[in-house]
């Protein structure tokens, strides 16, 4: 997978390394900005109230 990407990047080794770094940073940015904020509410750390989903009851 990574070998395939490396082989398909243009330029010499230095250009490939630079493009790889940019790609990796882009992936990390997308994860922190969009993917993790979406996944985080699926974990229990947000449940700090005693009436979640019970607002309609009272």
């Amino acid at each position: 997978m990574y070998g395939w990407i490396w082989r398909h990047l243009p330029g010499n080794t230095w250009v490939k390394a630079l493009i790889s770094l940019v790609l990796a940073l882009t992936v990390v940015f997308i994860l922190f900005q969009y993917v993790f904020p979406w996944a985080e509410p699926l974990l229990p750390f947000n449940d700090v109230t005693v009436d979640q989903g019970m607002a309609a009851v009272r």
Binding site: M1, Y2, L31, F36, E40, F45
Partner: peptide
């Protein structure tokens, strides 16, 4: 075998990044 190990390494890196996000970035 190589592809499988690459997937495992990627999943591990993803989990480490998520922990960093939860403990530090939030």
């Amino acid at each position: 075998v190589r592809t499988l190990s690459e997937i495992c390494v990627t999943a591990g890196a993803l989990i480490v990044l998520f922990v960093v996000y939860l403990l530090f970035w939030t």
